[in-house]
Design a protein around this nucleic acid. Structure first.
Lengths: 193, 193
DNA sequence: AAACGTAACCTACATATGGAGGAAAACCTA
DNA sequence: TAGGTTTTCCTCCATATGTAGGTTACGTTT
């Protein structure tokens, strides 16, 4: 049992990376719900008890495993201002491209036998990013602590919804087509009545 | 072990209802991830093996337990045509009101320790409903088999996103306020450029 | 009311979970 | 390189999961 969780230690980084890689590999092979901790640990070349030294369950590992990718992904969320929406089409294209590159992984994580933990993580990040974009566009600099921003939550949910739907159907369109279809919907949100 | 699954039998309905009630009760008390099958079965006054006669796991039960509520809820999804959007404000109000009535349940199911199964179910239903509404509004009667409708997926995800965000924050606004804030966003989606 | 069908229950079992304590190995610092 | 520190691993253990077979009790049907 450990208390300090020193990230500087080479062993920790090595172990966590191995577990994250193993999970990503396995999730592309079989259903998340059919993955045991023992499976992941074995694939990572790590003991089962070491797994529990780092993560409470498979979902927590899954969240950690795609946090980096998700943060890149979330750079693509269009915010509700001119500033943020300026280069948004390119960002949306990047979003769907990245998604397509890891289609198996994200389909497994966002689908019915996926992880509510991961879904919530993505939605939350996207909401925060959308809100930050809006604040920036409105010229507000006050760092208000994550208030209730309905349009941001709306856009974030929409992004997740479009992604999950597209992945579930086996990516029937190219990332470019998806970006072209989705972009006007985001634009419409931020157009005055 | 049974094979025919006769729904006409009084015992089946009784058992399933008891399990669904028990799950709803328990999910309001503690986290879904902390619920064991034994807990649910005991609360329902049913043996653990009977649980497995009806559901494969807790998530499948959760999905079944709120299917009826969800179907009522989904009646509130605005579709992209004039027909569907006509009475949509009232439907949105109903949506948020119902959500608030079962806030504990839905917060638990849609949040980070919730059920991807339930989330996916809701999103799927809402997408299908949105698509049906759009088809109806466009005067199309051909029963095409659930094609890729990006705006419908967008709106469905947005609805889930707004709901999850609102519930996670402890419902900081009234259902009426939420309906008023959300309604123009849906309208914007279906307004021509 | 009797007979049939099936749901509910019980027992048993192999596996998975989650955690505790302690020994060994690897790391960082001096 | 010697020191102490922290991680990893091993072994247990109590509980939970998921499945199977057989028995009892209930509901439906005639």
């Amino acid at each position: 049992m450990t208390t300090s969780r020193a990230l500087g230690d080479r062993r920790v980084r090595r172990t966590q990376k191995a577990l994250q890689r193993a999970l990503i590999e396995l999730v592309e092979e079989r259903d998340l719900s059919r993955l045991s901790v023992a499976d992941v640990a074995e694939r990572a070349g790590v003991s089962r008890s070491t797994f529990y030294d780092h993560y409470r369950d498979v979902h927590e590992l899954a969240e950690a495993a795609c946090t980096v990718m998700i943060d890149e992904l979330i750079g693509s969320v269009p915010g509700p201002g001119t500033d943020a929406t300026r280069d948004a089409p390119g960002k949306l294209l990047a979003f769907f491209t990245t998604l397509a590159e890891h289609a198996g992984l994200y389909r497994a994580l966002l689908g019915p036998s996926g992880s509510a933990r991961v879904i919530d993580h993505i939605r939350r990040r996207a909401t925060a990013a959308g809100h930050a974009g809006a604040r920036q566009a409105a010229g507000e600099s006050a760092p208000d602590g994550d208030p209730h921003d309905v349009p941001a939550a709306f856009a974030a949910g929409a992004l997740v919804g479009v992604a999950a739907d597209w992945l579930e159907r086996g990516c029937p369109r190219t990332p470019a087509e998806m970006a072209d279809l989705t972009w006007p919907l985001f634009v419409a949100l931020y157009r005055p009545l």
